[in-house]
């Protein structure tokens, strides 16, 4: 138990390695393409504006309300989705590294988190563009979105560790996760808006952890007030996922290399 926790902590402490590797991955991505790393931002922009206009019409919502909602929501969703689905293949695709380099277990996960955090930061320009386009001012506590990002990273660290370990042992697991995430996208208020009068909608949100992960970043951008309970819930989720990741790691520690 002790040595497992030590390994995870030493993974964090080795920040120069994962921060550098994550940064370098961004640099090397899409090296041969002209738009390069900005493709992820551009494709988000196409989705946000296209689906934003379509659903604002279908659901009869004013564009200046709906576009910031789907813009911030979709970008955060892509950030979460990218990490969750990457977790399913991380140990398998970096098998050669794991069978030689003796990295702490979470180094490769932190590397992925760095890469996706940089992409999220790049997409922040898209959120700004949406707000300028719709002439909506961000909420007065917009800086709290950063705290939401940090909380999301904490939740994802544990969740990814868990998913990565289970997927290394059971190769079906990641397909299940991918299928689940596709459904969750529609269950989370991203292309639809919350409506306090609608009980079903409120239920869908209350029991959906992804709603809280999205909202803790989105709310400060599009809303004028601070919702403290959001932070408490997401913090609780971070504790829960990291405990789950740790338990999986305790079990998998000696076995992982034999599963690859």
């Amino acid at each position: 138990m002790d040595s497992a926790i030590k390994e995870i902590l030493s993974g964090f402490a080795d920040w120069r390695r994962w921060a550098w590797l994550g940064l370098y991955d961004v640099k090397l991505q899409n090296r041969r393409s002209f738009v390069g790393t900005w493709w992820s931002v551009l494709s988000n922009a196409i989705f946000v504006f296209g689906v934003g206009y379509l659903f604002s019409y279908l659901m009869d919502r004013p564009i200046e309300v709906f576009l910031p909602h789907i813009g911030a929501g979709y970008i955060v969703w892509q950030f979460i989705l990218g990490n969750v689905s990457q977790a399913g293949t991380v140990f398998v695709s970096y098998q050669k590294i794991i069978l030689e380099a003796l990295l702490p277990i979470n180094t490769l996960i932190l590397r992925g988190l760095v890469t996706s955090a940089i992409q999220l930061a790049m997409s922040a320009w898209l959120i700004a563009a949406v707000l300028v386009y719709t002439q909506v001012l961000p909420g007065p506590f917009v800086y709290l979105a950063l705290a939401g990002v940090v909380l999301n990273l904490a939740v994802l660290h544990g969740a990814m560790l868990f998913i990565a370990i289970v997927s290394a042992r059971f190769r079906d697991f990641r397909h299940l996760v991918d299928a689940g995430m596709r459904l969750v996208f529609f269950l989370t208020p991203i292309i639809w808006m919350p409506n306090p009068a609608d009980e079903t909608r409120s239920m869908l949100m209350a029991f959906n952890p992804f709603y809280y992960m999205v909202e803790v970043i989105r709310a400060p951008i599009v809303q004028p007030t601070v919702q403290m309970d959001l932070y408490a819930i997401v913090l609780g989720m971070a504790v829960f996922t990291n405990l789950a990741g740790l338990v999986a790691f305790l079990f998998a520690r000696r076995r992982l290399v034999y599963w690859l």
Binding site: R16, L21, Y24, K96, L99, E100, A101, L102, L103
Partner: peptide
């Protein structure tokens, strides 16, 4: 030095791959 290719990136230059490999093997950049 067990695996020839681990950590190497096909699109990166030789210089960049020296860095990548070295960092994965535990060196500071």
């Amino acid at each position: 030095f067990l695996n020839l290719t681990f950590g190497l990136n096909e699109d990166a230059t030789g210089w960049e791959n020296i860095l990548l490999r070295g960092v994965l093997m535990g060196e500071r950049p």
